[in-house]
Simulated assay, not measured.
Amino acid sequence: MSKRPDAAAGTPATLALTRAGIDFRAHAYDHDPRAAAYGLEAAEKLGLDPDLVFKTLLAMVDGALAVAIVPVAMQLDLKALAVALGGKRAEMADPALAERKTGYVVGGISPIGQKTPLPTVLDESAILCETVYVSGGRRGLDLELAPDDLLAVTAGRYAPIARARPR
């Protein structure tokens, strides 16, 4: 994998990875503003297995913001996130607060290069992946990198925080 910040138009995420010396690849695609699920759109447009594409979600755990990164085909288990962070209760964060604290817009929130560093948890399913794909900081841009590198740049940790979507 080679570094390709030029393809990413220098988002805070690509700049943070470059500064940290982390190997990554940027993958741009034509975002459809009518897309209902940004992560699933990325998987489809990039021709990827949805298990390799991860979405970045912000939650409040006992009143404090935290970042959860889970496969796009799954959903966040809020109770498991609370446990992973030593908390009792978690709920999804208000989208406006998420945008304000991260510096990114919903649908383009990257776990990397956020304005305010937050506790970060990556679903343990990523351990099985050579590389994962996360938002690059804008809609229509995903970054491919090793999951351990993602945790290194976000000071994150692995935990079982994803569950299957109800059918």
Rank of each mutant, 00 (worst) to 15 (best):
A20N: 01
A59Y: 01
L97D: 05
D49K: 09
G87T: 07
D51W: 14
R34C: 09
L48C: 01
A73T: 08
A98K: 06
D62V: 03
A73V: 12
P5E: 14
E44A: 15
K79V: 07
P12M: 10
L15Y: 01
A43L: 00
P5L: 09
A28R: 15
F24A: 02
A35H: 13
A82R: 02
A37C: 03
L97M: 15
D6P: 08
V72F: 10
K45T: 05
Q75G: 11
R19T: 13
E99P: 12
V67E: 07
A90L: 04
T18H: 10
G63D: 04
L97R: 15
T11N: 11
L58Y: 03
D32F: 09
V67R: 10
L76V: 13
L76Q: 00
G87Q: 09
G10A: 11
A43I: 03
A16I: 00
A20M: 02
Y29M: 13
A42L: 10
L57H: 06
A59K: 10
F54H: 12
P71K: 12
L97A: 07
D49E: 07
A35E: 11
G47L: 06
L17F: 01
P12R: 06
P50A: 04
L65H: 10
L97E: 09
G63M: 00
P50R: 09
T14V: 12
A9M: 09
P95Q: 06
A84P: 09
G86S: 00
A59W: 07
G21I: 00
D77Y: 09
P33A: 06
A7I: 11
A8S: 14
I22C: 00
L46R: 02
D94C: 08
A93I: 12
A7R: 15
R34P: 02
K79W: 04
P71N: 12
V70Y: 04
F54A: 05
A82Q: 03
R89Q: 06
A66W: 11
A7T: 06
A80F: 05
A93N: 09
A96H: 14
L48W: 04
K55M: 01
D32L: 11
